[in-house]
Every structure is written in structure tokens, then in C-alpha cells.
Write a protein that binds this DNA or RNA. Structure first.
Lengths: 354, 354
DNA sequence: CACGGTTGTGAAATCGCTTTCAAGAGCCCC
DNA sequence: GGGGCTCTTGAAAGCGATTTCACAACCGTG
């Protein structure tokens, strides 16, 4: 096979540019024009089966792989979608990425990922960079402000927001109904008989947090009295913030996310507060560390991977069809497990756990 | 400013292709040739400051952003590096990605991410795809076999292996010294007085696992007797696998990773086995869930983000300088915490925990 | 047998940018 | 004042694909 293609065996001294096999080389080897090679490879037009065979074997022979940049330029699209996330070490986002990645692959696209490191001012430039190298962009939980989002989405470049709805603007977005979910949580607590509840709040700039808080208006109807305690987003934050709460009268705590709640839980265990006997604890996200953490946390399941999938599909529609501006919501589920129970009627004691 | 640029105000009806501002448009607006615009934007040659100003304002005016594909094509490089990971939902890899992303950004490159879903046969095609759209490729814990790796790295395209060394081949790679780390673990156990130890083994195809196992030869010198128990990679695997171990005489268990160990730990708690009193448990990776899990696991810290950083830098060197084939190792650290202790001399009892 | 209609193929234009090359302007120095 | 420099700028040639367009060759039909 190799002997009738002497070019292959001659390996020229590694030049500055790596030796690249182009579509013209393939054409020459197969005795056809580059146009025909393109047609065979993309199946865009009928070609004589005999020619096609020659082309295919030349491709294999030479190890030809089309240059993605050239294709992108000629086709006017890159075959790539971009995703911006605030923080890769937050387990939330890789799960979303996983969903996006799966969708991208089924549509034959590659996935570019950028991380803003939770810095709203960095986001702008990163999105610009994504826009000039991707057919569409997915913005996950963008921290930037309303006006910047409005500005970025007004360019005619497909953009989908994940996990953030900008009120007043109809931007294609996919998110979860946090208000509804938190209302479910409140309903659950009310039903168990809780009255005084603390909420360990998330980052101030977070839309997801303000949505959760919004639900508390409705919660008043359930007869709940909810104290919002500034907290943060990590388990450390929960660990620190819970101290003050314990001195109050609350019988249930819900956290902005599971990490916070688990951090708080760890602290409470240290202090000898029993869960759920002394205190009901509810998380948010369901980051499924149950088996690992030994605590079956009652929490709200955010379908992270599905969020990525839905976002990816919405973006795909936007890129091909062109119209899809209706915000959508992924469904959530309250997972009642071992950390929520009816409040005790007798006052709480600080007993050591064992 | 706009009045002397009438072209801008004329907004043609949105065509099929989005209206793109090209370098020629900018040139026209600034009254210079596209070549000059390019020179201004890239700083590749001296241009008259007055011209440069005109160009810069035209760029701002028109909202020009260079087309990445065209740049890539003209320059012969994409400004992109690719990373292949087996599984995004494994907390290990996002951390590596974080390191890679940071390096990429400092070198002005974008990061493409692909996930193989732990499927060795999918990896091949994904890497091919990465190679034709990235300047360099980072293979994280590739599951494919030796020969395939050899084949892929023999093309003259920069590739760096992360977390896998292929014996007999000198491929640029960055990994951690698993043998050394596991030897440390064994030393720790021996020092505490343990004799019989079980190792919950990782996936069969995993190089990282076989490295860990290799350390056990050395461990014999410490007087340790180590049983290798087939297990897996998730906490569920650990949870399932630990049953048999408990029926044996071992006084310490170390797992292929933290997840396994924590899964096993959860099961042991359910069965009333106390840690570390009845059993010493040691993990691997230090996925820092301590606060969350309420267990301060003794474990080996794998510097995941640094691994990504070092890998990225090695790749960068490979792409620019061209020579860097020496495998390197990142340092690891044994973190002795609350789950390891001297074995009890009296036989273990299966008491309920509380 | 001539003729319109289909079909498959190649030449060439195109995508948007970089970069070489050549030309013109301005400068210094003899 | 003219020859030789340097220095800045524009024209044009790539980069490697796709895609339009035109042209043969071939088909069946009247």
C-alpha cells in the first residue's frame, strides 16, 4: 500500500510549521480536484463511487484531517460553542458542562470553556473572546450586571443564559424555578410544624439567591417567620455562619446550597446539636454526596446536567433556526431525606453527640 | 464622530449570515489598508501614531472583533489548546481544568474541552478532533492503550500526558509519583503498628491504580501484608466492596481514591465499626470534602490544579520551543488526619455507633 | 442523428486575516 | 543636488477549506 505513495515514506526534516496534509495533497494523490475531495468528505454532492473510493483511500493513506480553521472560515461557522462558567471547582458547573458537552457532541460541535474566577469584570472580555471564536455562547450564572448582559445579548450572536433570568429583557435563557422550589421547601417546613426558620443566604450579587429570597413573601402565607442570615457559598461559610443562628429560636435552617448546609451541619455536630431531632436542615442543589457524607440531606434537586443539556439545545435551535427567545425553566424536586423532621416541643439541649 | 462614517448608520436587513465587520471595513472607515489595521492591532510593525489613532477609533466605532478562524488560518495556529478528560463529573478533572485554564489564559489561548465518558474507544476520535482544531493537546488520564497513545503522540503535534506515564516511551508527561505516595502511606501504617491491610483497588485499566499497587512490593519491607480487593472508582463501589474486607483480619483499609474510602466509611458506620478505633481508613486524592463530610480523612493530597498548571506549561513549552520530552512529577503530601490510628489489640466488636 | 436535459467534475472565487514584497516618501551625507 | 538609506504604507499573495459556475460527457427522445 505504501509503495505507490512514495511521498509518505519521505519524512522531511521537521520544519517550523508541522508538515500538514491539505485537501490539495489528497486530491493530487487520488488524481482528482480538491473540490471533489471536499464533496466526498462532506457528502454534499454525488460523486462517482470509484472516485470516492480513491479519495477515501488517499485520505487514509495520508492521514488527512481537515483543518478546522479553514473549514470554519469557508463555511462561516466554527463548529464550536462556548461556555462561560464562574468557577470550575464548584461542583455545580462541571455537571452543567457535562450536559452541554453531550449536546454539543451530538450536533458535531466542539466545546470551548472559559472560567471567570467569579470575577464579574473579567466576564466581559471572556465573552467577547468566545463570541469571536464560537458559533454560540452559553453564559452560566453570569455575575455581570443587567446592562452588560443586555449589551452582550443585543449583538446578533446567539447567546443563551443558564441559571439567570434578566427581568425586563426577553433573552433566551434556561434556568430553574428557584422561587417555586423554595416555596416547596417552605411548604414542607410548614407542614412539619416549623414556625421560625433561618435562611443562610448566598452571595449578594447572585440572582439565584435573590430568587430564593423572593419566595419568602409567599411563605408568610404558610405562617413561617424567616430570618435571612448573610452567609456565602462554601461549606466554610456555612460553618462560620451557623453560630449566631443557634443562639436564636429557630427550629429549621435552610441554606443557599448544599455546601453551606453541610458546613453548618458539621459545625452543629461539633456543638452537639442533633439533626433532625434538635434542628431541621435543608440544602439546595442535591450535589449527591450522601453516600460520601454519611448524611442524607433533605434538599432540592437541581437538575444540573439537564440544565446544560437544555441550554445547549436551546442554543442549537438559536443557531440554526434563529428564533427562540422564550425563557424556560427546568423542573426541580424536593428530596425529603433524613435531616428534616417536626420540631421538638421541648427546648433544645446542647448534649455531646455520642 | 458617526457622521463621517455613513456606512455604519446604514444597517442592512439582517442577512442569513450575521453582518460581520471585517478588517477591510475598519480599514475603509479609517482610510487605511487592511494591512495597516492588522499592524496596529497586533503591534507587529511601527505605524504613524495618527493612523493608529484613526484605526483604533474605527475599531471601537464599528465594534470590530477579529475573526478567530481567519486569524488561525493565516497564522497557522489556532490560539487554542485542547484538553481531554474522562469524566467531568469526577471532581478530580475540573480541578485539573482549572489549572490548565489559568495557564492558557496567561498565554492568550482558549481552552477546548472534551469528555470521553470513560470510554477508551471514544478517546481516539476525540483526540483527532482536538488535534485538528488546537495547537496542542493535553490528555488527562487517558484510558486508551499503550499502542494507541504511542500512535497519537508520534504525529508531530504537541501532546502532553497528564496523570499517565507510558513505560518505555518518552512522551512529555506530567504526573504524580503514585508509587512514592503509596509508599508513604505504607510507611505511615507500619509506623502505627498495622500489619494486615486491605487495598480497595481502582479500575483495572487505570495506570494510576497499577502504580499504587507497585508500591506494595516495597511495602513488604515494612512488614505489611496487603490484600488487593477489586473495587472501582466511586463511593458506591467502596460501599459495596467493604463487606468482605470486614470479615477478614485487616486493621487498616486504604482506597484507590477518597470517594471509595468515604463510601466504605459510610458503610462501616452503618455496621457500627468505629473509625479509627476499630479500623484505620486512608484515602487518596484529598478532594477536600472534610468540612462537608464531617470526616477528617487521612489521605494523600494530589495537587490537581497544579497538575493542570504544570501540564499546561509543559505543553506551552512544547508548542513554542518544541523540545520537552522529559516526564515530570508533581509532589504529593500525606495528610494525616482523624481516620488513622494504631490498631487495637483486642478483637473488633460490631457495636451500634450511638 | 441532432438536440435539450441531466449529471459529474474541475477551475476559480471566496471566507477574513497575516505577511511578504515593492514602492514611495523623507532623510542624511558627501 | 543627487545617491543611498531607512521607514512607513499599500497591493497582493497566501493560509486550507467550501461553493459557485461553467463545461464536458452522457442520457434518452423525437
Amino acid at each position: 500500500m505504501t509503495q505507490d505513495l512514495p511521498e509518505v515514506t519521505v519524512r522531511p526534516p521537521r520544519a517550523q510549521r508541522p508538515v500538514r496534509v491539505t485537501i490539495t495533497d489528497v486530491g493530487a494523490a487520488a488524481g482528482v480536484s480538491p473540490a471533489t475531495v471536499s464533496r466526498v468528505l462532506n457528502g454534499t454532492a454525488k460523486v462517482d463511487p470509484a472516485l470516492a473510493d480513491r479519495v477515501n483511500s488517499a485520505v487514509r493513506e495520508l492521514g488527512y484531517r481537515p483543518n478546522a480553521a479553514a473549514q470554519g472560515l469557508a463555511r462561516g461557522e466554527w463548529g464550536t460553542i462556548g461556555v462561560l462558567v464562574p468557577d470550575l471547582s464548584n461542583p455545580y458547573f462541571p455537571d452543567v458542562l457535562k450536559g452541554v458537552s453531550a449536546v454539543a457532541r451530538t450536533h458535531g460541535r466542539r466545546m470551548m470553556v472559559m472560567e471567570s474566577d467569579e470575577d464579574p469584570s473579567a466576564e466581559r472580555e471572556l465573552v467577547e473572546d468566545l463570541m469571536r471564536s464560537c458559533d454560540g455562547v452559553l453564559l452560566c450564572s453570569p455575575r455581570m450586571d443587567r446592562t452588560e448582559i443586555a449589551e452582550l445579548t443585543s449583538r446578533d450572536h446567539p447567546v443563551v443564559l443558564v441559571n439567570r433570568v434578566v427581568p425586563g429583557l426577553t433573552i433566551p435563557s434556561i434556568s430553574v424555578d428557584f422561587v417555586g422550589a423554595m416555596t416547596m421547601v417552605c411548604g414542607h417546613l410548614a407542614q412539619l410544624g416549623h414556625r421560625k426558620v433561618a435562611y443562610l443566604s448566598g452571595p449578594a450579587a447572585s440572582w439565584a439567591n435573590s430568587e430564593r429570597v423572593r419566595a419568602f413573601d409567599t411563605a408568610k402565607a404558610f405562617g413561617l417567620e424567616i430570618t435571612v442570615v448573610p452567609c456565602g457559598s462554601t461549606s466554610e461559610h456555612g460553618y462560620e455562619a451557623i453560630g449566631d443562628v443557634l443562639r436564636s429560636e429557630v427550629t429549621a435552617v435552610c441554606g443557599y446550597n448544599d455546601l453551606i448546609t453541610l458546613g453548618a451541619l458539621a459545625r452543629m455536630r461539633e456543638l452537639g446539636v442533633r439533626v433532625p431531632r434538635d434542628m431541621t436542615m435543608i440544602g439546595f442543589d442535591d450535589i449527591s454526596l450522601d453516600r460520601v457524607t454519611h448524611t442524607n440531606l433533605t434538599t432540592v434537586a437541581v437538575p444540573r446536567e439537564e440544565l446544560g443539556r437544555l441550554g445547549g439545545e436551546m442554543l442549537e435551535r438559536l443557531m440554526t433556526v434563529g428564533q427562540d427567545s422564550e425563557p424556560r425553566y427546568a423542573r426541580m424536586e424536593l428530596r425529603v431525606r433524613d435531616t428534616s423532621a417536626a420540631p421538638r416541643t421541648t427546648p433544645r439541649l446542647n448534649l455531646p453527640e455520642q
